[in-house]
Amino acid sequence: MSDPTFRHWRKSTRSDGGQNCVEVSDAVDGSVMRVRDSKDKTGPVLAFTGEGWAAFIAGAKAGAFDLA
């Protein structure tokens, strides 16, 4: 299996320019989504399958991760 080709890292357009931002980069074929801390560009990267990322986004939109 070859490594997928990834798009450029990007931040949300809703980012306020503060220090608590993440960046994402998706594979062109949609198979993988990468996430990293925007302050530590050489640090660890989380990788999600396309299905896992879709489930995370759906959960976030539904409020599943909101703090009480």
Rank of each mutant, 00 (worst) to 15 (best):
D3C: 02
R7W: 15
D29E: 03
S15Y: 04
D29A: 15
E23T: 10
G30L: 03
N20Y: 14
S25N: 12
T13D: 07
A27N: 07
S12P: 01
V28T: 11
V24K: 02
T13R: 06
R7M: 10
S2W: 15
R14P: 06
V28M: 02
T13V: 10
D29S: 11
E23D: 11
H8P: 09
F6H: 01
A27T: 05
M1F: 15
W9Q: 01
Q19K: 12
R7H: 14
F6Y: 15
T13A: 14
C21E: 01
T13P: 08
P4G: 06
M1A: 11
T13L: 06
P4M: 08
T13K: 13
K11F: 15
G18T: 04
K11R: 08
S31M: 05
G18A: 07
A27C: 12
V22D: 00
D29G: 13
S2Q: 02
S15I: 06
R10K: 15
R10L: 09
S15V: 05
S2A: 07
D26M: 06
M1I: 15
D29I: 15
K11P: 00
N20K: 13
V22K: 00
R10A: 10
T5H: 12
Q19T: 11
D29H: 13
V22W: 02
S12Y: 08
T13G: 09
D26S: 06
D16F: 07
W9S: 00
G30T: 07
R14V: 10
P4T: 11
V22A: 06
